[in-house]
Design a binder for these strands. Structure first.
Length: 763
DNA sequence: ATGGAGACTTAGCAGTCCGTGT
DNA sequence: ACACGGACTGCTAAGTCTCCAT
C-alpha cells in the first residue's frame, strides 16, 4: 500500500506563476513546459500530430453537430459508422484468445489476435460515438414534476405523498440499507434529545435518529432567495465611445456593456472566443438602432466606463469607518432575514441565499461558452421548495415560477441558468445537518472500502490478464483511479471545455516509456482535468499494465479514447458489484484519508512541540493535496514576500554572527578576569545566541514550507477528502488545540466529528 | 442500453478581512 | 496609524452519480 503512492509529482507546471489562464492556454496551444526540453524533438512532431488530431476531433464534432439537425439521418449515419468502426477495430482489438502469460515476452507487434465465438460481439465493442452535442440551453423547458408533488393544498395529500416518496425510495434502496451505521461504533447513537436549551446554537443532530431513506426533511420554512440589485444606469458623464464618437446606450445594452467594461483588464478579453461570444450576446440586448451602429467590438471604447468603475471601487475602499460599519450592519440584517431557514424545527444557516447576479460567463480553461451573457434571474424563473402553506412571498409585483413541496430533495429554491441550461440551487450551509450527515456517510463508505480494498486490488490485478478487452480496460482504469486518485472521467459535451478523467483518457494523454530516468515501464500522464488543471505525472507501472496500455493504444489516433470499451457507468456498476455504495470517487476519499492517517502516524513525534506537530500535520496535508493534484495559482505577491522573508533570514544570520562574536569576547574576558559578573554576562550571551539560532531555524522552516506550498492548495483536501475525525483524534491525542487545524467555518462544518471522535479514533 | 435532466459534491479564484510589523 | 500579506469567505463553475423516460 505504501509504495502505492510513493510517486510524487516531481514536475509541476512552472508556468503557473502569474496568470493561470495564460499558462493554461499555453499548455493547450503550444505545449510549452520546461521539463520537456529533453525530448524536444520528439515533442515537436508529436505536437504537430496533436494539433492535427485536434482538428480532426473538431471536425468530428462538426459532423456530429450537423447530423443532429436531421435526426433520422443521424441515426443511420451512426449505425453505418458503428459498423465501419467495428470492422476496423475487429482486426486488432480482440485479445481474448491470447491472454498475456506471466512471462510473455513476445513483442506485441507480432501478436495475432483472433476472435472466438464465445465473445458476444456486442459485448466487446468499442463504445464509439460517445460524444454528443447538447442541444442549446433551452430557454424554457417544460416543467417536469415528480409524480408525487402535490398539486393541491390538502394536508392529507401531503402526508400521503410523503409516504409514497418513502415507499418508492425504500423499495429502491431496500438493499442499500443503513450501512454507514454499523461501522466501528461510529454509528449515530440512538440517544434521545437532551437539553433543549442551547440547542439553537448547537444541534447535535448526529445523536438523533436519521430520517427514513429518501426523506430529507419533515418541515422546511424559509424566506426565499435574495435577488441581485437592479441595474443602476451610469451617470451622464461616463461615456461609451463607438468609432471614437460618444454614444448613449439604452439601459439594457449599457448594462451588458458594462459587464465587459469591468473586465477590460482581465485576461479573458484577450481571448477570441470570449469576445466573439460576448459580442454576439450583447447585440441581443441592443435596440434596433444600436444594433445597426455597433457592428464591431473593436470599435468600442469602454475605457471611460472602466475608469469610472475603478474610481467607484476606490471610493468604496476609502469609506469612513462609520460607513463601513453601517454597511456591515445592513448586510448582517439581510443575513438575519434571509440567511436562515427552519428545518425540522431547527434554525439552520443557508449556504447561498443570494441569486447569482447577471454577468459574463467565466468558464474555465478553453471553454467554448466563455463571454456569453448570463442573464438576470427573476422571481418568475425561481422554483421554491418548502413545507405546505409556508411559501415565502415573492418580491412585490412578481410571482414565483412554481412552489413545490418535495421533501426528497434538499434545496430551498432553484432556477435554470441560461448559458449552460443547468439547474442552480439554493441549499443549506455545510454546518447543517443535511450536509453534515451526508459528509459523515461519505467517510463511512470510504472506511468500508479500507476493509475491502486489498481484495479489490487483487481482483483488478487479476483482471489485467482477462481475455476480455472490456475487462482489461476496466481493470487498468481502476488501477489508475486507485493508485493515482484520478477522477472517474465522465463523458463531456462538445460545448464544454475539453477535460478528461480516468475513463475518458485519450491516447494523446499518455505516453509510454520502456525506460525513463532509470525506471522501467514508465507511463507519463499529461492531460487537463477538472477545471482545466493540468495533471502531469511520470509513473512506473507494472509490466502487465504497461503491455495492456500498448495494446489499447495500438492503431489508434491520438484523439481516440484510450479505453474505448469503458465509461463511468460501466465502471461504477462494476464497483457497486464489488462493494455496495462503492463508486469511483470513493477511492479518492479513501486514499486521501488513508494517506493522512498514515502520514500523521509516521510524521508525528509525540515529544515535539505543538509548532512542530502542526508542521507535521501540514506536511501530511500536503502529501494528500499532491496526491489529489490540488493546485493553485502562485500567489501574485509570492516572489516579493519570499524576498522579504529572505531578507529577514539574512538579517538574522548577521545578528547571530554578531552575537557569537561578542559571546567569544565575553568568554575571553571572563577567562581573563575570572570575575563572576563577566561569567554571567557570557552565559547570557550564549543563551541569546541559542535563541537567535532557533529563530533562524523557524524562519528557514517557514521559507521551505512556503516554497513547497506555493502551487499546492491544501484547503480542498481538508474540506472535502480528509475524514475530520482523523484530525480531531490527532489533535486530542497530541494535545494540539483544534483551532490550530480548523478555523471557525471548518469547525462548524466538522462539529459532528469534533464531538464524536476521541483520541483513539482510527480511520 | 442510452441519453438527458436533476441533485449534490468538489474546485479554484477574487475580493475582503484582519493581524502583524514598522 | 498604516501598509502588507496571508487567511478566510463567498461565489459559481465543473465535476460525479442517480434516476427516469424512451
Amino acid at each position: 500500500m505504501q509504495d502505492h503512492h510513493s510517486h510524487k509529482h516531481k514536475h509541476k507546471d512552472k508556468d503557473r506563476e502569474k496568470s493561470k489562464d495564460k499558462s493554461r492556454d499555453k499548455h493547450k496551444d503550444k505545449h510549452k513546459d520546461k521539463h520537456r526540453d529533453k525530448d524536444k524533438h520528439k515533442e515537436k512532431s508529436k505536437e504537430k500530430e496533436r494539433k492535427h488530431d485536434k482538428e480532426e476531433r473538431k471536425q468530428g464534432k462538426e459532423d456530429r453537430k450537423q447530423s443532429k439537425e436531421d435526426k433520422k439521418l443521424d441515426k443511420e449515419e451512426k449505425k453505418k459508422g458503428k459498423e465501419k468502426h467495428k470492422a476496423e477495430k475487429a482486426s486488432y482489438v480482440e485479445v481474448k484468445n491470447e491472454p498475456l502469460s506471466e512471462d510473455d515476452d513476445i513483442p506485441l507487434a507480432t501478436r495475432s489476435f483472433s476472435q472466438t465465438s464465445q465473445d458476444s460481439e456486442d459485448d466487446d465493442q468499442p463504445l464509439a460515438f460517445r460524444k454528443k452535442i447538447k442541444t442549446e440551453a433551452k430557454a424554457e423547458k417544460p416543467v417536469k414534476r415528480k409524480a408525487e408533488d402535490m398539486t393541491s393544498d390538502n394536508e392529507d395529500d401531503y402526508a400521503a405523498s410523503n409516504k409514497k416518496n418513502k415507499k418508492i425510495k425504500e423499495e429502491k434502496k431496500a438493499k442499500a440499507g443503513k450501512k454507514p451505521a454499523a461501522v466501528n461504533g461510529a454509528s449515530p447513537t440512538k440517544r434521545v434529545k437532551k437539553e433543549k436549551k442551547e440547542e439553537e446554537e448547537t444541534w447535535k443532530w448526529w445523536e438523533e435518529e436519521k430520517h427514513e431513506d429518501g426523506v430529507k426533511w419533515k418541515s422546511l420554512e424559509h424566506k426565499g432567495p435574495v435577488f441581485a440589485t437592479d441595474y443602476e444606469p451610469l451617470p451622464g458623464n461616463v461615456k461609451f465611445l463607438y468609432s471614437g464618437k460618444e454614444m448613449k446606450l439604452a439601459a439594457a445594452a449599457e448594462e451588458v456593456g458594462s459587464f465587459y467594461a469591468a473586465m477590460l483588464e482581465h485576461d479573458y478579453v484577450t481571448k477570441d472566443v470570449f469576445n466573439k461570444n460576448f459580442f454576439k450576446d450583447w447585440r441581443k440586448f441592443m435596440t434596433h438602432s444600436e444594433k445597426e451602429i455597433i457592428t464591431d467590438l473593436k470599435k468600442c471604447d469602454f475605457t471611460h466606463m472602466l475608469t469610472y468603475f475603478k474610481a467607484k471601487s476606490e471610493e468604496k475602499k476609502n469609506r469612513t469607518k462609520e460607513e463601513k460599519q453601517q454597511l456591515k450592519a445592513e448586510n448582517e440584517e439581510t443575513v438575519k432575514e434571509y440567511g436562515w431557514c427552519i428545518i425540522d424545527g431547527h434554525k439552520q444557516r443557508i449556504g447561498n441565499f443570494k441569486i447569482e447576479p447577471p454577468g459574463l460567463f467565466r468558464g474555465r480553461g478553453d471553454h467554448p461558452k466563455m463571454g456569453m451573457v448570463k442573464r438576470r434571474v427573476m422571481p418568475e424563473d425561481v422554483i421554491i421548495n418548502c413545507s405546505k402553506g409556508t411559501a415565502p412571498k415573492p418580491p412585490a409585483g412578481h410571482k414565483w415560477k412554481e412552489v413545490r413541496h418535495d421533501n426528497t430533495v434538499t434545496w430551498l429554491a432553484s432556477w435554470t441558468e441560461n448559458v449552460q441550461g443547468q439547474v442552480k440551487y439554493i441549499m443549506l450551509n455545510s454546518a447543517s445537518r443535511l450536509k453534515g450527515e451526508k459528509d459523515w456517510q461519505k467517510y463511512e463508505i470510504a472506511r468500508q472500502l479500507k476493509d475491502s480494498v486489498e481484495k479489490i486490488r487483487e481482483t483488478y490485478k487479476e483482471d489485467w490478464k482477462s481475455k476480455e478487452m472490456k475487462i482489461r480496460q476496466r481493470s487498468v482504469a481502476l488501477y489508475f483511479i486507485d493508485k493515482l486518485a484520478l477522477r472517474a472521467g465522465n463523458e463531456k459535451d462538445e460545448d464544454q471545455a475539453d477535460t478528461v478523467g480516468a475513463c475518458s483518457l485519450r491516447v494523446e494523454h499518455i505516453s509510454l516509456h520502456e525506460q525513463k530516468n532509470g525506471k522501467q515501464c514508465v507511463v507519463v500522464f499529461d492531460f487537463l482535468g477538472k477545471d482545466s488543471i493540468r495533471y502531469y505525472n511520470e509513473v512506473p507501472v507494472e509490466k502487465r499494465v504497461f503491455k495492456n496500455l500498448q495494446i489499447f493504444m495500438e492503431n489508434k489516433k491520438p484523439g481516440d479514447d484510450l479505453f474505448d470499451r469503458l465509461n463511468t457507468t460501466i465502471m461504477n456498476k462494476h464497483l457497486n458489484d464489488l462493494m455496495e455504495g462503492l463508486t469511483a470517487k470513493v477511492f479518492r476519499t479513501f486514499n486521501a484519508s488513508n494517506t493522512l492517517q498514515e502520514q500523521l502516524d509516521s510524521l508525528t513525534d509525540p515529544k515535539s512541540t505543538v509548532t512542530e506537530k502542526i508542521l507535521a500535520y501540514n506536511r501530511a496535508n500536503r502529501a494528500v493535496a499532491i496526491l489529489c493534484n490540488h493546485q493553485r495559482a502562485v500567489p501574485k505577491t509570492f516572489a516579493k514576500s519570499m524576498e522579504n522573508l529572505q531578507k529577514k533570514i539574512d538579517a538574522k544570520r548577521d545578528a547571530i554572527e554578531d552575537a557569537e562574536k561578542s559571546y567569544k569576547d565575553l568568554k575571553k574576558e571572563a577567562k581573563r578576569t575570572g570575575s563572576a559578573a563577566s561569567k554571567i554576562a557570557a552565559g547570557k550571551k550564549e543563551k541569546q545566541v541559542e535563541k537567535l539560532k532557533e529563530q533562524l531555524m523557524k524562519l528557514e522552516v517557514q521559507a521551505t514550507d512556503r516554497e513547497e506550498n506555493k502551487e499546492i492548495a491544501l484547503g480542498t483536501s481538508k474540506l472535502n477528502y480528509l475524514d475530520p475525525r482523523i484530525s480531531v483524534a490527532w489533535c486530542k491525542k497530541n494535545g494540539v488545540p483544534i483551532e490550530k487545524i480548523y478555523n471557525k467555518t471548518q469547525r462548524d462544518k466538522f462539529q459532528w466529528a469534533i464531538d464524536m471522535a476521541g483520541p483513539e479514533f482510527v480511520f
